[in-house]
Amino acid sequence: MRYQASVEVRLREGIADPQGSTIENATSKLGFEGISNVRVGKSIRFTLESANEKAAHKTVQELCDRFLTNPVIEDATIIIQGIE
């Protein structure tokens, strides 16, 4: 089976996000009120072959742990969807 994987890499809670703070500062300068907690992440998408959805998820989780995230500062959310 082929699956579409969508990985969102985020800075872990409590880790300072200089990009997020800079964007947040800009929002009020542009006149947008009440915007807070801006966090910037990365979105990584790919397709993969796998026996089933559970196995696909496991592979992507391993890929995140070993490569796509730096566990010291980042974590990831994974979405797996089957491709018709």
Binding site: Q19, V72, I73
Partner: peptide
């Protein structure tokens, strides 16, 4: 060296970007 695990921690973007 931090990525390969020989040293702890990580290097983030500079404060002030």
């Amino acid at each position: 060296l931090t990525e390969v695990g020989l040293l702890p921690g990580a290097l983030q973007k500079n404060i002030g970007l």
